[in-house]
Design a protein around this nucleic acid. Structure first.
Lengths: 376, 376
DNA sequence: AATTCTAGTAAGGGCTCTTGCCTGGAAAGC
DNA sequence: GCTTTCCAGGCAAGAGCCCTTACTAGAATT
């Protein structure tokens, strides 16, 4: 019924209003007009439309006396029904689930250690604690307004970080040759999907950690994750490059320089140095950090070999080191990289505390906002 | 004076009209309305505005009798003044310059062989032949409508392909360690810039060849250029990934498997096999193509080593082989790639004749169209 | 109590786009 | 040769969105 061309203008105005409220939490109509750059009547119309659609709500708050001496204004903000998103991190160290809102605030959080054979059930427990029971498990008891924090029922979407390679098509964790397989076979998309009303995005922890680094490292860099597992993420034009199946950056098998200067797969270097954990393909971080200088030099050269390949194929302007032991060996890696035919600046990561979760959270907020703005 | 919000609608309509005319060459107002999905009055208004701005012109043609029996319509098309773009290819085999219009047609073309020590002057000659003299060299004689084909004077922009690594910042050709340096030190941006009225984009031939392959190879693939020089381009999400300085894919120095199975830089493999040209870092393609089966297997394994690195870091879904000898060794390379821990499908390139020029031409047309639509 | 300042509303106008109708002229059919 | 059919193009009317201007309401200041 409405004209498609004019719809565009109107929806553009509404989008700007929503974005302004995501940034500023609460605004009066007059403030909205100034912030978005539209006239007061237009702002008022947009607020009316969005309130009707249930996306905005009068907070009941009024402009405080202190500010001006004129008429009081009504503060509007996003309606609680715009909902929340779920960010989940699955790592050998533990499982974390966070419920975030469109402002980027964490409204609920649950965390638990994990035993290798109980990843799936721990994941279910943690998500239940943060996001409430699945749809199937709760129809009877909950009928009132909604969950604990009054911030809507089920999250509208989920973003999951897993500490193993993820097949982008299926969302399942896959076992690649010679890679440590830390979490094990798991289908996070199916498990988490039961708790949310919309899509579930799954990717490996390294890619999310790189995304978290984006704010401080610019638009073109490579993120080397050096911890129990080994990974790499290439960020180009501000986006993490995942490749056709999402397996870009699984560098465990990449050829590099070994202890005796011969070419070996990256992960094999740690086997030859005796730094792999008993009965596992994972690296023993504690012993690695305690290693002597010559061992550190060997590792630095091996990492530099990986850097050389990344520089050759992707030409990142910067190498960022993350993971449990990457930043600790910064100087050894820097020295070895400086000897390469095409050196590159090397820097430690700036996001230390749960970088993968930070990246997943940021992506969850971004997707939630896009969902809200898109209309549903 | 006009309202910014309504400007948006109007310009959107005008852009659609321009794009429709780029696809269909000539259309009546009524055809435009149907094609763009707007009403006849709106189409008529847009044509009036665009004609006023000099972007559209009545061709003088009228609807042919055969088509319908109603009133004759007036055909409109892009005005000649929207101008042309220049696509240039600089390779050891020769220099080519083409002038293309917004329809993607080549309106003039010049080609010449090149001697290593005369690249700059040959380049100048070829561009002069295709695009006319530089601004400085012609003020007096030309005052009439314009150049030879009546298709506007100087090209509005240029896209240059050079068969050597290109620094994206400066546009200059750079010499990387162990890479063949075929064209030599040159500043195409400065030379070609004198002939065009706008920006000059310079990139290496491999990236342009990969762009030409995009139509047939999808959005995620790696293009291996195996000819006198060695190069690689990673295409992700439909875009050629150039990296921070534009040096992504300069694989000559990448470690791979050598003749004796030891790790050596890619280009070194050909030195060890005695397949480099006398006194040069370039590969002797003729002798390579005449090599025996065991040599071909060695080369196949070496290429597979490069593929392994590309698969590891970029996860392309497909490997495309181009260059003078790449497709010829398809079976050897396929066999070696099949033995990798993470194999990938390998295919020969589909663009054979001057693939780099094809890609540069396509980019020149796209940029010219964007320039026209953007308004100037 | 008067003044001052601000949030919000109302009215009017400009612009774009749409629908519907009219016109002129060429081809098709008698 | 005349009439009918058909269609490009133009005009008129109307709707929607946004903007500007002007006004009202209400609270703090003076």
């Amino acid at each position: 019924m409405a004209k498609p061309a004019l719809d565009l203008l109107r929806s553009r105005t509404d989008e700007h209003v929503l974005h302004a409220l995501m940034r500023h939490r609460r605004l009066t109509r007059a403030e909205l007009a100034a912030e978005v750059g539209i006239s007061k009547p237009t702002a008022g119309e947009s607020v009316r439309r969005l309130t009707e659609r249930g996306l905005l709500a009068d907070t009941g708050e009024r402009t405080p006396g202190g500010r001006g001496r004129g008429r009081v204004g009504s503060y509007y903000s996003l309606a609680p029904s715009v909902g929340t998103a779920l960010a989940v991190s699955i790592a050998p160290e533990g499982v974390v689930a966070e419920v975030v809102d469109a402002y980027g605030d964490t409204v609920r959080r649950a965390e638990r250690p994990v035993r290798p054979d109980q990843v799936a059930s721990t994941l279910r427990d943690v998500v239940t604690e943060a996001a409430g029971p699945t749809e199937a498990a709760r129809p009877a008891e909950v009928a009132g307004p909604v969950g604990p924090a009054g911030r809507g029922g089920r999250p509208r979407l989920a973003v999951v970080s897993a500490a193993d390679p993820v097949d982008r098509g299926t969302g399942r964790l896959v076992h690649l040759p010679d890679s440590p397989f830390l979490v094990g076979d798991l289908d996070p998309m199916a498990i988490v999907g039961a708790y949310v009303g919309g899509p579930v995005v799954v990717d490996n922890d390294v890619n999310w950690a790189a995304r978290a680094e984006r704010e401080n490292a610019g638009d073109e860099f490579a993120y080397l994750f050096l911890g129990r597992g080994l990974g790499c993420a290439i960020v180009g034009a501000g986006e993490v490059r995942r490749g056709s199946a999402g397996l870009a950056g699984e560098i465990a098998h990449l050829l590099t320089v070994g202890p005796d200067r011969r070419a070996v797969p990256f992960v094999e270097v740690f086997a030859q140095l005796g730094l792999r954990q008993e009965g596992s393909t994972a690296i023993d971080v504690e012993r690695l950090l305690a290693a002597d200088e010559s061992t550190r030099q060997v590792i630095g050269r091996a990492v530099a070999g990986v850097v050389a390949a990344a520089v050759t194929l992707a030409d990142p302007g910067l190498i960022v080191l993350g993971g449990a032991w990457g930043p600790a060996l910064l100087e050894n890696i820097r020295a070895a990289v400086a000897d390469l035919p095409r050196p590159a600046p090397v820097r430690p990561a700036t996001a230390f505390a749960q970088p993968a979760l930070s990246g997943a959270r940021a992506d969850a907020v971004e997707r939630l906002r896009a969902t809200v703005v898109a209309g549903a």
